[in-house]
Design a protein around this nucleic acid. Structure first.
Lengths: 345, 345
DNA sequence: GATCGGGATTGAAAGGTTTCAATCATCGCG
DNA sequence: CGCGATGATTGAAACCTTTCAATCCCGATC
């Protein structure tokens, strides 16, 4: 009570530690720790007293020390391809919600489809010793992921299967999605189909195109042409549509866009050019983001079960964290058709 | 080389630590640390040798231990109101980019306008000992933020000024934005204006409405009516527009929506009802999200300098971290008008 | 040949939490 | 009254990195 030295120099109050709490409460640090982590091991009176002191002193646990001791971070890291695409933020939300049930925070990183940024994020997550990692891989990270796994970090691939069968994955059947989309267009009597998307080499795009081609091959008189874009945003869709309109030899009567951002761009270009949608040209997108429904001409789309994708990914990851020897498992979800005005007069 | 015991039990390889590197390289841990943090203090030969060993052993720094020693986390936390609104993800990207220049990671949390979730996030950030915090406050967190500041965590309010003048803030002048939007409608000859947005009490909404009212008050014969919505998404916009059309006594000739999501909903409802935009009714939104430009009828909007908002917030935060005694500062940015087809025939 | 100066390197301490074997206190029963 | 059992509490070790005063080594200078 006469300890002036403590109050003296104090530039800024040092953080309150378990030791401070223990001293103030007149117990040992072990007891304080028990109150926090195994309250049932502590007598009721002691527990209440310690909790009161914690509150009074405003003690907040130092997570760094806790992690250091535990050897790994409770959190889970996630690398997504594009935070600006609502599809990915929705998947991330699905993950986050499921993880919240296990009281595990999610640390979100955005690679923007850039391999260097992806590397940086993996470095960061490794330094953080996250206990699990969800990743939509950009490219060439397989060795890196192997190393992480060998160190005890659980890894699950999202929205794309890794080449190897060493890691679990969750993905949506993009071939089926492409087929469903184009079959719907064919069912509406359309025959001259155009596919707009890119770049070539992006697994999702390739599969959607293959599905589309399969549907067309099964139908007499149906044709499919391909318009390749760079990145898949609305601007790409606008340019793709303008190209199609310019070359008016055989104007398509339906367009399948590889995602909704592209489809919105296509829609905009067509409306601007005075082409009636869906009368002259029908449009279908992919992902069924919220903006598809609220576009001025509501957009038909192939719905991916986004929240489910996130939830299943989180479940697989949790299972792998709990049992690292668990066999890898590839979960494939089914897409479904959502019909709106852009394909139905 | 004959150390069988080490290889023996090993369930899973324990993480490689500086100690292991030091032993393998035949130097002390202090030297390894110097190689990592002050390479210029180490002789060239030693440095190269240690780096080689680090690479060979696959050593990765343990961030928890580093933080524990340092006393605070290098990272910065951010709480946003709604990750699904592109406006916020764009602001966050602005922050992230600026922080990247200082090699500080951003940990993003989503409150979803829920005060409980906001509390949980603040708990998390406090346990993490983040060095700074960017927050779009939901409600009643002032005492909490004070405590954080007293412990040495820098705090900056984003997109909204805190009631008190203790914390720096960055915001956009919403009154001016509202005025600009409605003045534009008036300049186009519109007189019967409707404002769609809500809920009442949300600072941003109130200010935008006040600005709108001011512009209307300055113009003879102009009227303003208010349609209050709950949360501001596309569904709210659709309902608002339907209400306006149903009551066809004095149909407005222009609608000012409190954000672009609402505006898109309004646009959709009008198109569906066969109302011509902008001929019969003009629409202007707020935020200028990317989807505003790629809507089928491109949407006029009030542009908020989103990336700049994020960048300035990051700058203020960095300054406060570097000098905690720094006086609070309120930065107000100016919005600007973006005219597209929805208000211009 | 002794001393000095300088850069390079060392080694131990500190930081906060958790864990666990060891100790203490209490009570019931013989 | 003593002993054992049970439950509560203790205290030190471990986790890994960084820092800094102390030491070492080498070459140069007198």
């Amino acid at each position: 009570m006469t300890d002036l030295s403590a109050a003296g120099a104090g530039d800024r109050a040092r953080a309150v530690s378990v030791k401070d709490v223990a001293a103030e409460a007149g117990v040992s640090v072990g007891t304080v720790s028990n109150v926090l982590n195994r309250p049932e091991k502590v007598s009721t009176s002691t527990r209440e007293h310690v909790l009161a002191v914690i509150d009074e002193l405003g003690f907040v646990r130092n997570d760094a020390a806790r992690q250091l001791r535990a050897g790994s971070n409770h959190a889970v890291g996630m690398v997504v391809l594009d935070v600006r695409n609502p599809f990915f933020t929705d998947v991330a939300r699905g993950v986050e919600e499921r993880l919240a049930e296990h009281r595990r925070p999610l640390i979100l990183g955005n690679s923007g489809q850039d391999a260097d940024r992806e590397q940086m994020l993996l470095d960061l997550f490794e330094e953080q010793r996250v206990s699990g990692l969800l990743v939509s891989p950009v490219g060439g990270v397989l060795p890196r992921l192997r190393r992480l796994r060998d160190r005890g970090t659980a890894v699950v691939a999202v929205d794309r299967r890794l080449d190897s069968s060493e890691f679990s994955s969750v993905a949506v059947d993009d071939r089926l999605g492409g087929r469903i989309a184009v079959q719907h267009l064919l069912d509406q009597g359309r025959r001259r189909i155009a596919f707009v998307g890119g770049p070539r080499g992006l697994t999702q795009v390739e599969h959607r195109y293959e599905g589309a081609a399969a549907a067309v091959a099964d139908t007499d008189g149906a044709t499919l042409r391909l318009v390749v874009t760079g990145i898949m945003d609305a601007a790409a869709g606008r340019h793709g549509a303008e190209d199609l309109l310019a070359d008016d030899g055989d104007r398509p009567d339906a367009i399948f866009a590889a995602n909704d951002l592209v489809a919105l761009g296509v829609l905009q270009a067509l409306t601007l050019a005075g082409v009636s949608v869906p009368d002259e040209i029908a449009i279908i997108g992919y992902d069924d983001i919220d903006f598809a429904a609220s576009a001025a001409i509501p957009l038909s789309s192939v719905r991916q079960p986004r929240e489910q994708l996130g939830a299943v990914a989180a479940d697989l990851l949790m299972a792998t964290i709990e049992d690292p020897t668990r066999a890898a498992e590839d979960v494939v979800l089914e897409p479904s058709l959502v019909v709106r005005r852009s394909t139905q007069p």
